[in-house]
Simulated assay, not measured.
Amino acid sequence: MDIASGRFPAYLKSRAPQHRIFLFHGPDDGLVRELARALSISVLGTLDDPFGYIELDIATLLADPARLADEATALSMMGGERVVRVRGATANSKDLIEPLLALDLQASIVVIEAGDIRKDSALVKMIAAAPQGVSVRCELDKASDIDALIREMLGAAKLTASPEIIDYLRDNLGGDRAVSRRELEKLTLYMQGKSGPLSLADVRAVIGDSSAQSIFDIMNATMAGNVRALEKHLNKAFSAGDSPIGMLRFLQNQLKARHKKAAAGSAASRHLAKCLKITMEAEIGCKSTGYPDEAICRRALMRIAIANRQR
């Protein structure tokens, strides 16, 4: 079964009992973590339950493949369902997950977090097609998603926002759900104990047009292959005076981290290595060719975004 990320909170209110294996994947890592956590808490009520909750990473399972089945079929000492949360899955994790489909998982829910794997990858298709499986694609937030998050969090804090404030927040929050949620949490904490309505000055004091957020927007657009969004965020960052070399180095670190997680010799590993080479060559070009740094950086990131869009 495939469920859109926007529909998942409603699904949780009446989760089908036959669904025991959940795969969260897509370019929005923050939303992947948020929904996986929401599902886990909906089952247990808390993540501080050593008998009912366990986290495993893919590296652990690669070293001991039988452990996943052992944990998924174990019974909670306190009764009730257990949650087995698997983090860092990739498109190459299918063989590790597949044995679960033959097991009776009535006592456990398996929650799998994967990165930005293709919708037609073997892992996604396997989980979506399984009677006990649910696949949830987590795309980067669109304007309507950001609006809903803003209204949800401000409403919970009993804060009312004018259209002007909503517009400002929409423009200055990024596409990553976890980053946006943290920024809004900072705003609600800032307003605690303050009298009077929420003002644009209050919002600007907490949520500025920061280069830290800008670089996350650029990275997300690049890795998602969203050329239009990348052009917008690059223009915004360069106008603010952000460093092209700083952008390239930040992206290099992100690519290195993803390359390390990808299976050696896989298509994903080769693709990430190629993208990393583009950023490194661009950094050298910025330091040695005499061409404008912004033009070199823009061309490199656009090449990577186009390559990601074509995957």
Rank of each mutant, 00 (worst) to 15 (best):
G225S: 00
I278Y: 12
E98S: 10
R7N: 11
S76L: 03
F216S: 09
E81H: 09
F22E: 08
S211V: 14
D145E: 00
E183Q: 13
S144G: 06
K287W: 10
D202S: 10
I54M: 11
L251E: 07
N92D: 06
G45L: 10
S76I: 01
I215G: 07
F8I: 03
G225F: 09
G241Y: 15
R303Q: 15
S5G: 04
A240C: 07
E185W: 11
G52I: 01
L234G: 01
D120V: 12
L62S: 07
R87Q: 03
M247R: 08
S14G: 12
Y11F: 13
A178E: 06
D145H: 09
A201E: 15
T90E: 06
A229E: 09
L96H: 02
A148L: 09
S210D: 11
S266H: 00
V227A: 09
G241N: 14
D49K: 03
V134G: 04
L68K: 10
A4C: 08
T279N: 03
A307K: 11
E152W: 05
E183L: 07
G115R: 02
E294C: 13
R249I: 13
S214F: 13
L200T: 12
G225R: 08
I296N: 08
R258W: 14
D171S: 10
A148P: 11
A114L: 00
R303W: 02
G30E: 01
R137E: 14
Y168T: 06
I150E: 02
E231L: 14
M219R: 15
L31D: 02
D145C: 01
E98I: 12
T46G: 06
L230S: 07
L12R: 15
A143K: 15
L189Q: 13
K274Y: 01
D293A: 13
I150Y: 02
P9M: 02
F22H: 08
D64A: 06
G208Q: 07
R85Q: 07
K186Y: 05
R118T: 13
A212L: 13
K277G: 09
L189N: 10
V136E: 05
A212F: 15
H271R: 12
A36T: 02
A143D: 15
D29F: 07
A221K: 03
P65E: 00
A4F: 04
M1F: 03
I166H: 11
C138E: 04
P197G: 08
D141N: 06
S93Y: 01
L105S: 06
G133P: 01
A66H: 04
A273L: 10
R270L: 08
D147L: 13
L251V: 08
A273E: 04
A157S: 11
G88K: 07
S93F: 05
T90R: 06
L248D: 00
D176W: 05
L272P: 03
Y168V: 00
L301P: 06
L149N: 06
N220A: 11
V203K: 12
A122W: 14
I166G: 04
K142L: 06
L12Y: 09
Y53C: 00
K261G: 10
K158E: 14
L159N: 07
L96Y: 01
L189I: 12
M77G: 04
